[in-house]
């Protein structure tokens, strides 16, 4: 299936959970926040949140910045 991940279309085997997607991408879940179809997903719900074909997913983390970097 195709999802929109951080703005780009990406092919993944699915449907899959947020946890499975992060594992697949090699992303440490403790360091990121995930938005699924414009809703922020609480970490406790990563295991139970299903991502389906066409869904929009944003994975963000903290980077260096003061103001408008």
């Amino acid at each position: 299936m195709t999802i929109i991940l951080n703005g780009d279309p990406v092919e993944v085997a699915g449907p899959l959970t947020v946890t499975a997607l992060l594992t697949h991408l090699g992303v440490d879940p403790r360091r990121v926040a995930v938005e699924h179809n414009l809703t922020v997903i609480k970490r406790a719900l990563y295991d139970s949140t299903q991502i389906a074909d066409g869904d929009q997913v944003e994975i963000v983390n903290f980077v260096g910045g003061g103001s408008h970097t």
Partner: peptide, 13 residues
């Protein structure tokens, strides 16, 4: 300290 929120670089971990 203040930090910015940005998309994770998926292609380069």
């Amino acid at each position: 300290v203040t930090v910015a929120v940005r998309r994770v670089n998926i292609s380069d971990r």
